[in-house]
């Protein structure tokens, strides 16, 4: 009886509150959040509109949400360039290969340091964790890559980043939460550690591996600094992000000492312009990640909360 009374009392309160104060509160929240969405989305929609607009017309300005003179010329031009075609290929390759290597290697090491009986468990764990606190820095890293003969190679995109300590920790936490009985039964069946890892642990870890794969793909796709640092003299190993960075750099400095694709729009002024090429490249360089992340939302949310708070 008392319960019932309190419930009805609650209802009364909330209905009375929601009359004015709550409504104003609600309106403020909706306005603020809508503004946030506009501020977040507008630049992308605007860039998309410019990239889909005829270049000569874009120069007049005043394009906001929709293209004024719809045209696919910018995209045709960009993809007719061998540089962009090749850069897309390298970007895709490094994202795919880098992710596969990272996921497999991180999961394997994470499995070994999750085994309580492993005698080197502490040693391996600490060896990895120390590198979170201390790193050689830019110059020693550059000299190492140079001495290893990795300058101007594709391998430089993959090798230095095989295992991230953060990834290692979240996979290990995940494996430790798996029921012991499953691993034990595999052991009784006579499966060795590698077979247990491949046949049982990997499939069970799919959710956390999806998280790691997403983080790895995004960081591979988005990185440009290693291209700039190690491979800037080799055009065949350039990536989309680095091509875009060169375009931005060029439109920043008025002196166009650097030539090549970044400036090539200027000559063909009827069809394309630096402005429209820049917008088009921005879209090409960001759309793949924008398309995949909403589908993996539940995975990265989980990964962030497991790794970020508990470790």
């Amino acid at each position: 009886m008392a319960n019932l009374a309190s419930v009805s009392k609650t209802r009364k309160f909330s209905s009375r509150n929601s009359s004015l104060g709550d409504k104003i509160f609600d309106i403020i929240i909706y306005v603020v959040l809508t503004l946030l969405m506009v501020v977040t989305l507008y630049p992308f929609i605007n860039t998309l509109a410019v990239s889909l607009n005829a270049a000569a017309d874009s120069m007049k300005g005043g394009i906001h949400l929709l293209p004024r003179q719809f045209s696919l010329e910018n995209y045709k031009f960009v993809f007719n360039e061998n540089t962009v075609y090749n850069a897309t290929l390298i970007s895709v390759l490094r994202s795919v290969i880098g992710t596969i290597v990272t996921v497999f290697a991180s999961a394997m090491v994470a499995y070994t340091i999750s085994r309580p009986e492993y005698v080197l468990r502490k040693f391996v764990t600490i060896a990895f964790i120390i590198t979170m606190y201390i790193n050689g820095g830019l110059i020693p890293n550059f000299l190492l890559i140079r001495d290893l003969g990795l300058l101007d190679t594709f391998a430089v995109y993959i090798l230095p980043g095989i295992i991230g300590v953060f990834n290692l920790i979240i996979i290990r936490s995940f494996i430790e939460q798996l029921p012991d009985s499953i691993l034990e039964s595999a052991r009784i069946d006579g499966a060795g550690d590698f077979r247990t890892f491949v046949n049982i642990v990997l499939p069970l870890c799919l959710p956390v591996l999806a998280t790691v794969a997403l983080f790895s793909t995004v960081s591979q796709w988005n990185s440009w600094f290693d291209v700039f640092l190690y491979n800037s003299s080799n055009e065949h190993l350039s990536t989309l992000q680095y091509e875009l960075q060169k375009i931005l750099q060029n439109s920043n400095t008025t002196s166009s000492a650097e030539s090549g694709f970044a400036n090539s729009g200027a000559g063909d002024s009827m069809k394309v312009s630096p402005l429209s090429i820049r917008a088009t490249m921005t879209i090409v360089a960001s759309v793949p990640m924008i398309i995949i992340y909403p589908f993996l939302q539940k995975y990265f949310v989980k990964g962030m909360t497991v790794g970020g708070v508990k470790g």
Binding site: A105, I113, R115, T131, G136, P140, N141, I162, D193
Partner: peptide, 26 residues
């Protein structure tokens, strides 16, 4: 536990080369 060793020590060697050698670079 040689299997566990085989699964982890190559990556410790990787770690030494790519993360500890640069510290020597100081």
């Amino acid at each position: 536990q040689r299997m566990l060793v085989l699964m982890s020590i190559p990556f410790v060697i990787w770690l030494v080369i790519f993360k500890y050698v640069p510290i020597w670079g100081w």
